[in-house]
Design a protein around this nucleic acid. Structure first.
Lengths: 278, 278
DNA sequence: CCAAAGCAAGAGCGGTGCTCTCTTTTCTGT
DNA sequence: ACAGAAAAGAGAGCACCGCTCTTGCTTTGG
């Protein structure tokens, strides 16, 4: 009953997919705000009114594209994560961040659709929530596992933020300390700040080697959420001292004890963290 | 030069301002993509074609609005900075960040215009650059002064990033070490990541006490660029040691399992419902 | 004072999202 | 197997959009 529900049902699925494909194609050319039902219909050889049999309005088509974009991004991130699932948390964290960046650069207009300015007069329905959460859930899972496994390094919260931090911890991941959850939410937003600036061209004439820059920034973000850098390499294997964990030099700031011996018994391929990729 | 150049010239200036005002008003209601020259003209009691005497196209009107928005944001930030110019670098840093956030929340559509998805088919002319740089220059100035004064804490860079970091340092602020410039650029993007997520509704049902959250995140950002926290106060005055600088305590070390085993990373539906833009 | 320049108005072009009606095709219950 | 229901396409039409071009009127500077 579920497989072939008749020629009509199958045709509907196909036409729906064709509409979304053509819409996505136009999206990549003209951007979301120029998405035109008539143009899509024209390209598909149908008449504009016929599209309304499939999507009751332009906004509904947009919603479908948004969900697809979230899912595409989420799938990319999950796939990248799965590829390094045996590695340490920092590496997994950076892998997910990089996957998000790569996806965004490959699909700038779809990225704009989901993380850019909201389309005015349009509010995304709750149907988008599960798809939208995938990357965040991945990040949470990485940090949670790091916490469960090797432990995470905590940064104390100011008093004024403590109740809110506890609330967020309750909402999002009950088994993580509020300090970590707070840092995680911030890192989540900051990650897409980095990606957005690159995709939207704000780094034009500012950052040239954007891949290296992003990798470093993502690693710093990972440190910020408390992931412990094994073996002492932030990202290069050549940095001094124990990891990006603590500032190292100049005047005033003397650093605090790191957890774990800096160089002792790299549990796994610590230092080569990212050199393997170049 | 701007003295009375005849009634006609003055009228032109006034009408131009009136058009921009009305356009801004519509922007705040309907958003950038719904900006309609005809509607502006209608509201102003003129005919649509007359507007083209003042702005040769819709995009040129948009450019004018963009520059105004950058300038408005920049002025807000500079004003906030001036108000705390006697304080330490962290305070000034956070003040500028908060000013940007407050401005963005007060002018969400103008914020979307300058930091949201770029309008497709529209590329901002170089005329926008000076206005767009004001906030960044302010952040640079704060860090530079902190560096000259109390010294900043450095975070070592990975080898692969060093050439690029040096290049950025040369471009942006010759008298700052590359490590700081790199962190500064990252913090700049991350700051607008935080603001953007809040303005665009990504924090809906995730962060409630957004002001406290932002203040903390901004302070962490300040630390990340090497600002030294005086007296150990993060934002409220309860943090230990030399500032939010270093992780202080570690989380559970309870049964750290051997990490060879592929643990299921059970995402476990943890009440994680967030809303994308609303 | 008068030609030149600036300006408003109107008509018009091709485009948009969307609705309504009418016809054709496919599915389904008896 | 067939009639009725449901789904789908076609086309006309509405009100809007950005933008262009032509036609007159007003201001201004030499």
């Amino acid at each position: 009953m579920s497989t072939v529900r008749g020629a009509r049902a199958r045709a509907r699925i196909e036409v729906t997919a064709a509409i979304k494909d053509e819409a996505r194609r136009q999206l990549a050319v003209d951007g979301a705000s120029k998405l035109s039902l008539r143009a899509v219909a024209r390209e598909l050889g149908m008449v504009s009114s016929a599209l309304y049999r499939y999507f009751p309005s332009r906004d509904d088509l947009l919603t479908a594209l948004i969900i697809d974009a979230y899912d595409s991004l989420g799938a990319s991130a999950e796939e990248a994560h799965a590829k390094v699932s045996g590695d340490g948390p920092v590496r997994r964290w950076v892998a997910v961040c990089e996957a998000a960046r790569v996806w965004a650069l490959a699909h700038p207009h779809e990225y704009a659709l989901i993380y850019g300015s909201p389309v005015p007069g349009y509010t995304a329905p709750d149907t988008t929530v599960p798809a939208a959460s995938r990357v965040a859930l991945l990040l949470i899972a990485i940090v949670r596992e790091a916490h469960r496994g090797a432990g995470v390094a905590l940064t104390p919260l100011p008093a004024e933020l403590r109740p809110e931090a506890r609330r967020m911890a309750d909402d999002l991941a009950l088994d993580l300390p509020p300090e970590v959850v707070t840092a995680l939410v911030a890192a989540w937003a900051q990650l897409f700040g980095l990606i957005g600036f690159e995709v939207f061209g704000q780094f034009h004439r500012v950052v040239e080697d954007r891949e290296a820059f992003f990798r470093h920034a993502a690693a710093r973000l990972g440190h910020e959420v408390g992931l412990v850098f094994p073996g002492g390499a932030d990202a290069g294997g050549t940095s001094t001292s124990g990891g990006g964990a603590a500032p190292v030099t100049t005047a005033s700031d003397r650093d605090a004890p790191r957890r774990g011996a800096p160089q002792s018994r790299a549990p796994r391929r610590g230092a080569a963290d990212r050199d393997a990729r170049s």
